[in-house]
Each structure stands twice: as C-alpha cells, then as structure tokens.
Design a protein around this nucleic acid. Structure first.
Lengths: 353, 353
DNA sequence: GACAGTTGTCGGCCTTTCCGACAATTGGC
DNA sequence: GCCAATTGTCGGAAAGGCCGACAACTGTC
C-alpha cells in the first residue's frame, strides 16, 4: 500500500457504511453493474448537457465495478464514494449470482456495531452535554465501571478523517442516565452541528470507537429531481461543496461510458438522490416483475434515528418512462406511486421494490 | 526517504536545538568525535556494569559520527538524540579543521528565531493566561494588527510531534501587554506544565510557529554524577522514562566501541549530565592547555529564561583523574573548580572551558 | 536613584458547563 | 391504557477563564 494520498484519504469502509446509513450498499468489487447517466445527472448540482458527445448515450450501460474509494468530505464529514467503472459489451451479461452473499458484509457489520442518534435541542444548543441512549452506551461504548461513584470515564472516538476526539462519559442524574459532558461542546462547535443532525457511534473491528456525522437533510423526506446534491449546508462556505458532482463530470462520465472506456463517478449516498450505479444482479431480478398500475409494494426507509428500518406501503399509480424523448426504453423512474398514509406522490425506481 | 518511522519520528533539527538550549551542540555528520564510556555511564539511570566485556575498555574512543536522529519523548516532549558512531583506528586521528564553520548552523538559526520563557505561577496556575514577553511577541509571533481594538489574532504553533495548538493572542490591559488566553489553559493541562518549566517559541524557516518544552530540572543547578537521567518528571508515569538510558545499553555501547564495531548512543541534552560525545576538534584544542591549580577560567551557562548566555568565573582548585583505578589516563572530570560567587564546588570537563 | 518600560499577581465579573429535578415520551404488557 | 423505563428540558450552582488595576521588578540614564 503505497503513499496513495494525494490529499485524498480513504476511510474504513465499515465506518463509511455506518455513516451512509443502513440502506446504502455499494456493489462488490468486480461485480457487474448498470450505470444510469440519467440518474447520475440527477445527482449533480446543475442541469447536465450531454450534447458534447454524439447523441448516442444509452439509458443504461453494463459495467464492471473495478474500484471503490470510500471517502469523506474534508469540511462536512459527509461520506461519498469514488467508483471506477469499466463498460462491458452487452453480450457479457451473464450474472454473477453469488454476490448477494458477499455484498452485505461491511453493511451488516456496520449495522451491528454502530448506533445513530439525531441531536435534540438540548444536545446541540444547551450547555454542552449529550444525552447518550442507554443502548448506545451499553453496546457501543467501552464498558463503564459502575462501582465508582459516579461512574465516569474518558472515551476517545476517531472521526472520518482519523482525528481523535475526547469526551467525558458519565452515568449520573435521577433517574440515572448516560451523558457526554466535557469535550462534547467543542465537538459540536468544531463540526458545526445543529439540532436535527445525527451522529453515529461505531465500534471498529480493532476495538476503536469511531464517530461520524449525518447532516440533516434540508429538503425533508425523499427528495427528487428538484433537489440537487449541492444544496449547501448551513454554516459552511462552499469550499468543498464546489467539488461536489458538477454537470461537466457527469457529461464526461457518460461520454466515456458510451464509447466503452473506463470512467469514474462520485456518489453521495445521503444526497437523497437515487443510486445510479445498480448491481446488475438485483436490477435484473426486479425487471422480471411485471410492474403495473394498482400493484402494491413496500419499500424500506430509515427511521429518523436510524435505529431501525421501517417500510412504506404504496400503490403503483402509473407506469411511465420519465423522459420518453431523450431516454426511450429507460427503466429509470418507471413507476409513479401513491403513498398510503401520507397520500403524497412519490417517485421511485423499479429496482428498489 | 522511505517510511522510516517505526513509531519513532524525527523532528526539525532547528526546533530540537531551540529546545535543547543554546549551549548544546551536536558535532556535524561524518566528523570525528571522542566517545567517553565514563560520561555515558553518568548519563544512565543506574550504575553501569562494564564487566560483561573484557576489561579493556579505553577511557575514550575516537569515532566517526555517522548519523544523528533528532527526537523527542512521546510523553514529556523532552528532546534527545540518537547518535550512531563508528570507531576509528587510533592512527586515523587527523583533524577535520573545517568543522567549526559548519557546526553552528542549526544552533545559531535556532537561537536567532526562538525565545524561551520560564512559566510563572500566573502562567501555570491561574485562570488560563500566559503573559507573553514583548520581545517574543514582536520577533517570534506573526505580526499583530494593532489598528483593531483590541488587537487580537489566533496563532497556531506546532509541538515537537508536529501536533498543532491554537492560542488566542491579544494585546490589552493597562499598561498594554501581550497575552495568550484561549487555548493556553488546555495546553498547560495536556502537557502537564508547572511553574518553573519553560516553553520555547520558534519561528521555523518555512514560517511556521513551533512550541517546545523544557521541563524544570528538579535537581537545581548544575547536577552531577549523583543525578541520574531518569529522575522522573512530576505527573508522568514512567512510560517512556523506562526507555531512557539504561545501564545495559551503556555497557553494550561501550563493548561494541571497544571492539571497533558501530554502535548507537542516546543523549539527553537537558539531563544535566555532561556531553560524552565530544568533537575531536574541540577536545584536542582544550587538551593543549596545561590545566593547573589556581588557573582561572570562565564557563558559559544559560540564564534562567534562556534569553542570554552568562559566564561563570572560576578557579581551578584541583587537577585529578576522576577514577584512577578504573579509568587511568582519562581526561574525564579532570578539573575540580572553585566557583567565585557561589563558593560552591562544581565539577566540569576540561574541554568545556 | 529616579524614571520608564515591562510583566507578575490579584479580585471582580462574565461565560461556560455541570448537575439533579422534573416532566414528556416511549415501549411493553 | 396503565406502568416502568428512558430521555428531553430547565434553572441553579459551580468552575473556568477573561479582564483591567495595581504593584513589583528591571534596566537605563
């Protein structure tokens, strides 16, 4: 492993997944995936002009995923992935059927050893304390010696950049509860956290405690094409934001993909935009379903505190091609659905069901 | 420069010299030096048993200095050097007469761009402020904009491990003076500083500000053979202290030296023990002097705040061999002197005069 | 030895943050 | 729907740290 950091360091994939959330999965190395230029465009922070290249970009391109860099924004700690794809010939489409077994590894390990909490007003604003949910303290934090009075210890947690943060962890109050006191206020200020943001604690395989951040999504639930990626986070000048997915890089990726050459894409899992690099295995399975109006489905989503996965129940109201002129035959945004309880029109990708 | 840190990083030689103090000099690379096993033994933290090797260890051994690692204790920030020596045949003793020109480089640069202050009670104990001597603020710190009211800036200083510390630097009060406020208290606590310890500010050649520590010498002035190196610093469990110069490593070095093989020594410049690796050039010069009782000399020493060099005036009271049985013909501790003003017997090495 | 410049120490006060009390909320039965 | 467990919020209190006042000290003339 040579000096590979040109100011861009990778981070522990397990921590990356813990920060990305339970629903994000990156297909395994060397597996086959579909790349959707259309979805990539929705991921960008502006309208994409595909004109630079001959108007022959397909709506989806079969590729081999040859590399993944798990990374984090230098300023916001937001996680993202740099994915290298090599287009395959269409007749290479024999599925690697064994990937579901291996795909969920980091994923499940992250879920088991991590815990997320959305910051309350008291956590974020008040005099510098963080109320630690009992489950988190007991399963993620180092063991506390309850015999001392009061039980107290210093915990050290590494952020996505490998920087260490110290917190005083104390068990006190009536009724007793776990709190982070000294050090927490500093962390909140340095990371510019606000009520509504979440923090993730994870116990790494080497036993080290890690701490990650999930900024609150400003756009509320779901998002859609109307929300770009670079919507800007409060309190940050757009230093790194400028480096987020720009339309030019989408056009370039699509152009390279179309002529069969290796290309790179940057994927922000928490940007409320759908995945545009999709495992060929799962897509081919969902395409076998004959989606039709009136059909019911359920779709997983994260609860606010990321502690569980809940399910949306819905009914398909319309099966249509999103942009029949530009992208005929595209499975992208094929379904328009009616959500049962919120009675709100959502958009969804076929393969997510 | 390959990955050469087996958890042992070198530090900027200029900062090293600033921390070591104005009187410490390490002979230049590839110059000829004398190694004194006797002096090395005084540097160790316990009695040295030279018996393991045949009883033929000379009192001094001519060597070539082939490598120097400038280092700092991980816990106390104390600076020390790991010096590699290759014994030379006695007939190799032709002097490299050009070294005085080059020897003082780091030395003088460090002296010019650094400033040391001994911490007062107020600096160390009170509510977290450090009174910055005007000279230090004006010559070492980055320029302050005096037009704002009050003039204030954040300064960043790197310690010997390359870690950055932030301080608020403000110019206020009546009469006006420079102070470090926010950040200082944290630094004092982390570094376990006490009144009497000194801190060193240095402006590196690349413009960066550096901060080093000189722990107070617990043994008062001078020290001597009765003080070992590992005298223990208040507030530190002896984690690294155990790694200081142990008798075994002295015995090993002496044994290797005696049979003409390359060896390493560790030298703590602030351990109040005399240098035991001495430039052949300067030693040969001082040995040309016919030292005799009643002769007067002067000897440089550091003032408490390390801002200047002062001189001790003394009279030689006795010329004797320190241990005539074990080390006959040794120039080590040849002179016993009477100090004029303190009227206290000090010991000194011939070559230091 | 007086004076000017510098810097050590102190007490006041403002800010931060630590703390238990209490209440709101959640989940289990 | 009740009860127990958990955890959000609040105001009081303690600690930390910023401040100018003043005095002690140093070096100079």
């Amino acid at each position: 492993m040579k000096m590979m950091d040109k100011a861009e360091k990778c981070l522990d994939p397990q921590l990356w997944h813990a920060c990305a959330g339970g629903l994000v999965q990156i297909p395994p190395l060397n597996s086959k995936v579909f790349y959707f230029p259309q979805g990539h465009a929705e991921h960008s922070n502006g309208p994409v002009c595909f004109m630079a290249s001959p108007n022959i970009i397909p709506s989806f391109i079969l590729c081999k995923l040859t590399a993944v860099n798990y990374m984090a924004d230098r300023y916001t700690d937001e996680v993202f992935a740099r994915i290298t794809l090599v287009p395959l010939k269409a007749d290479d489409f024999d599925l690697d059927d064994d990937w579901p077994k291996m795909a969920h590894q980091n994923h499940e390990k992250a879920a088991k050893s991590s815990f997320a909490k959305t910051l309350t007003q008291s956590d974020a604003n008040n005099g510098g304390g963080f109320s630690v949910p009992r489950y988190c303290a007991e399963t993620i934090f180092p063991g506390l010696d309850y015999s001392s009075k009061p039980p107290v210890q210093t915990i050290v947690a590494k952020d996505v950049h490998g920087e260490s943060w110290k917190f005083r962890h104390i068990y006190r109050g009536t009724p007793r509860r776990h709190l982070l006191t000294t050090g927490w206020s500093n962390f909140v200020n340095q990371k510019k956290l606000m009520a509504g943001d979440s923090i993730v604690f994870m116990r790494a395989e080497n036993g080290e405690l890690c701490i990650g951040i999930r900024r609150a999504k400003l756009g509320g639930f779901g998002g859609g094409p109307e929300f770009g990626v670079g919507q800007g986070l409060k309190g940050f000048d757009d230093a790194d934001g400028a480096r987020k997915v720009v339309p030019e890089s989408v056009a370039q990726a699509a152009a390279l993909a179309a002529i069969g050459r290796q290309f790179e894409v940057v994927y922000y899992p928490r940007a409320s935009a759908p995945e545009f690099v999709v495992s060929a295995y799962s897509l081919s399975h969902s395409m076998k379903v004959q989606w039709s109006s009136g059909m019911r489905f359920k779709m997983p989503f994260e609860t606010e505190d990321s502690s569980r996965i809940s399910w949306f129940m819905g009914t398909i109201s319309l099966v249509q091609v999103a942009d029949p002129i530009r992208w005929p035959d595209s499975p992208w945004r094929l379904l328009q659905v009616l959500h049962h309880t919120l009675n709100r029109t959502l958009e969804n990708n076929a393969y997510q069901a």
